[in-house]
């Protein structure tokens, strides 16, 4: 890789890194979940780092963060036992972090 490419790749890595300031201190939970889902993530189904909004609850009834985390981890455990397919993809989508911030 050329020096020029190194500089550009550093630039891209910085722009595409999770932003702790944006997450208001919730970044460690994001990282935990993203790390957990990474082995299952489909390459084609992407909106940067999986920030797709999937509501697991009715609007106006946000889960507590601990409950949301528990629910996500339960889903992830079940996900491991499923063959790749539509159900697998849907469950994976539901595990993404956006709904924690209700």
């Amino acid at each position: 890789m050329t020096g020029n490419s190194d500089i550009l790749l550093g630039y891209f890595d910085s722009l595409l890194a999770p932003c702790p300031a944006d997450e208001s201190g919730e970044h460690p939970l994001d990282s935990l979940l993203l790390d957990a889902t990474a082995p299952f993530a489909g390459e084609a189904d992407t909106v940067a780092s999986g920030y797709r909004l999937i509501a697991l609850m009715l609007p106006g009834t946000p889960l507590g963060r601990a409950a949301a985390l528990t629910l996500n981890l339960e889903l992830l455990c079940r996900l491991r036992k499923l063959e790749p397919g539509r159900l697998h993809s849907s469950m994976l989508a539901a595990c993404e972090p956006e709904h924690w911030y209700g």
Partner: peptide, 18 residues
């Protein structure tokens, strides 16, 4: 400049309109 994660703002905005 210098703020991490600024490359994901559009993706996150569009996720709101999914």
């Amino acid at each position: 400049s210098g703020q991490d994660g600024m490359g994901l703002v559009l993706a996150r905005s569009l996720a709101q309109l999914w």
